[in-house]
Amino acid sequence: MSLLSFKQSKSRRFEQLVQPHLDVLYRFAFRLSGQQQDAEDLVQDVVVKLYPRLDELEAVEQLRPWLNRVLYRHFIDQVRRKSRQGDVVLSDLVEADGQADWLDSLESDNAGPDLMLEHARLGPALDRVLATLPPDQRTLVLLHDVDGWRQEEIADILDIPLGTVKSRLHRCRAALRKKIHRELEPTRHLERVGE
């Protein structure tokens, strides 16, 4: 086999392994970063990093969670690197505006006016509340409640015990409920004059 055909063969094998997972990787990267360009860069960095490790990729039994774990670790490394460059709060590294798009995709085509009004009110409030969570908590909630990942898969991706995933998810949901309740609570009721 010539060197050129070997390189083409390696390229094809790598593409066959990774290509089916690129959409999932991009969605996960977007959930983490909140920005289209950052998500694309994150996926590209991971793919470039993994290309020389084709033999290792071929040996992985469940490639999807493994790829997501690599992507998550790469994202965390970037966040840590950025935070060392200056005094930056981790939650400030992901902008809230990028989180708005995923709620729009949840709206039903046949929603009635009441449901549309509720979504119009709840969507932006939920985006604001999610943006206040630290990236690790936001990632956990988005992976489980939005993307539908099982807790076992999340534990594998984030490389933490299953019990930790369950307790963190419980705490995150409780904090979100309180924050969303406060966010949607009408401002102080003013008493009518003359009553």
Rank of each mutant, 00 (worst) to 15 (best):
A120N: 09
W102R: 11
P134W: 12
R188G: 03
G98R: 02
V24M: 02
H181E: 12
V24L: 01
Q35F: 03
I157L: 06
Q19W: 03
R171G: 09
D38K: 07
Q78D: 10
G194M: 05
V165A: 02
P20D: 00
F14Q: 01
A175D: 11
D23T: 04
R188Y: 02
V48S: 12
L22C: 06
Q62N: 15
N68S: 05
R177F: 05
Q35L: 11
K7H: 02
R177G: 12
Q19N: 13
D114S: 02
E183K: 08
S5W: 04
S167D: 05
L126M: 14
R27K: 11
W149Q: 14
L54I: 06
D38V: 07
Q44A: 06
A29P: 12
P161M: 06
R121K: 14
T132M: 10
Y26T: 08
D136V: 10
L143C: 13
F14I: 00
R182E: 15
L140N: 05
H119F: 13
Q78P: 04
A96D: 14
Y72C: 01
R128K: 11
L57Q: 09
V141Y: 03
V60I: 15
Q137I: 12
V48M: 14
V88N: 11
H21I: 07
A175Q: 00
V47A: 07
V129A: 13
G98F: 04
D145W: 13
Q8G: 04
D41T: 07
A111Y: 03
Q37L: 05
R150I: 04
G163I: 01
D55H: 11
Q36Y: 08
L103W: 11
D156A: 00
F75T: 01
L57D: 02
A111D: 15
P134Y: 14
A100I: 06
L50F: 14
W149E: 08
V46P: 10
L54T: 00
I160E: 06
V129E: 10
V89A: 05
L71Y: 03
D55K: 08
Q85G: 10
Y51L: 07
A131F: 07
Q78V: 12
V70M: 01
D156I: 00
D87F: 01
G98S: 11
L190R: 15
A29Y: 07
A29F: 00
D92G: 11
E61I: 06
R84F: 11
D159T: 13
E195F: 05
S167A: 06
D127E: 14
E118D: 15
R171H: 10
Q151I: 01
L122T: 09
F6W: 07
S91T: 03
L162N: 05
L158G: 05
V165Y: 00
K82R: 15
N110P: 04
L184P: 14
R69Y: 04
D101C: 09
E185Q: 15
S91L: 08
Q36F: 07
R27T: 02
S11I: 05
E95W: 03
L133I: 02
N68D: 13
P186Y: 06
V89E: 07
G86D: 14
W149L: 14
H74C: 15
V79C: 10
V89P: 14
L67E: 00
D55F: 07
K10I: 01
L17E: 04
D147C: 03
V18Q: 06
S2Y: 12
